[in-house]
Amino acid sequence: MTANAKDESKPSFEVSFDRLEEIVKVLESGQGTLDESITLYEEGMACLKCCHDLLKKAEKKIQLLMTDEEGKPYLQDFTGADTSDSESS
């Protein structure tokens, strides 16, 4: 969860994803100087990398939010419920 704080400074997947689309549009329009195009291309590649990094770093995890006797919350890995069992349905 400390890693989470680090994520804050980095753009989110959504921001990178949208920026990438924007960059492709600008490049396709053929506007701007060659220098600007190179800068955009590099930024686009960085956005791509950012998206893939975010995805790579993400991993499947299920946790239970539990509370101890004093009412303090803590997390516990969750193993059940992947296979269906039934209650009141």
């Binding site: 995805l55 993400a58 499947k60 995890k61 299920i62 239970l64 939010l65 419920a81």
Partner: peptide, 19 residues
């Protein structure tokens, strides 16, 4: 169970916190 199944089918790298 239904929810987790669908969630992970669509987003295999999702983090889920169950209360």
């Amino acid at each position: 169970a239904d929810m987790l199944r669908v969630l992970f089918r669509r987003a295999p790298r999702l983090k889920v916190l169950v209360a």
